[in-house]
Simulated scan of single mutants.
Amino acid sequence: MRIVAGQWRGRKLVAPSGEITRPTADRTRETLFSMLTSRLGSFEELAVLDLFAGSGALGLEALSRGAASCTFVEQEASAVKAIRANIDALDARRQTTVQQASVMSLGPAKQPHDLILLDPPYGTGAGEVALDRMLRLGWIGPATWMALETGAKETVSIKGLDCVADRRVGKARLWLLRLASDAA
Rank of each mutant, 00 (worst) to 15 (best):
63 L>E: 05
60 L>K: 02
17 S>D: 13
58 L>C: 02
39 R>N: 07
65 R>K: 14
34 S>I: 01
68 A>T: 14
58 L>S: 03
60 L>D: 07
45 E>H: 08
22 R>M: 11
62 A>F: 09
73 V>R: 12
68 A>W: 12
20 I>Y: 11
39 R>K: 14
61 E>R: 06
20 I>K: 12
28 T>A: 09
18 G>R: 07
35 M>V: 03
29 R>C: 00
64 S>Y: 08
31 T>F: 00
39 R>L: 08
17 S>N: 10
68 A>Q: 13
31 T>H: 06
42 S>Q: 15
69 S>Y: 11
55 S>L: 06
62 A>N: 05
61 E>C: 06
29 R>N: 00
37 T>N: 03
22 R>T: 05
35 M>D: 04
19 E>V: 07
71 T>L: 15
59 G>S: 02
36 L>S: 00
47 A>I: 09
29 R>A: 02
34 S>A: 14
21 T>P: 05
56 G>K: 01
48 V>N: 04
67 A>H: 11
74 E>V: 09
38 S>R: 11
31 T>M: 05
20 I>P: 02
61 E>G: 02
70 C>I: 04
42 S>C: 14
75 Q>T: 14
49 L>E: 05
30 E>Q: 04
16 P>E: 07
64 S>P: 11
67 A>W: 05
64 S>L: 09
65 R>C: 14
53 A>T: 10
68 A>C: 12
55 S>D: 06
58 L>W: 05
39 R>Y: 08
66 G>P: 08
38 S>E: 08
36 L>K: 01
53 A>K: 10
33 F>N: 00
36 L>A: 00
40 L>F: 09
18 G>F: 06
45 E>N: 09
56 G>Y: 02
42 S>D: 14
38 S>C: 13
62 A>Y: 02
43 F>D: 04
70 C>T: 13
47 A>C: 12
64 S>N: 01
16 P>V: 00
49 L>W: 00
29 R>W: 02
38 S>N: 12
44 E>D: 13
33 F>D: 00
66 G>S: 13
28 T>M: 08
55 S>Q: 11
60 L>Q: 09
27 R>N: 03
18 G>E: 03
16 P>Y: 04
36 L>H: 00
59 G>F: 05
38 S>T: 12
53 A>C: 15
35 M>Q: 11
66 G>A: 10
65 R>A: 04
43 F>I: 07
25 A>K: 06
40 L>E: 06
41 G>A: 11
43 F>L: 03
33 F>G: 00
64 S>V: 07
19 E>W: 05
36 L>T: 02
40 L>M: 14
45 E>C: 08
40 L>W: 04
61 E>T: 07
60 L>E: 04
26 D>W: 04
62 A>P: 09
41 G>N: 13
37 T>S: 12
37 T>E: 15
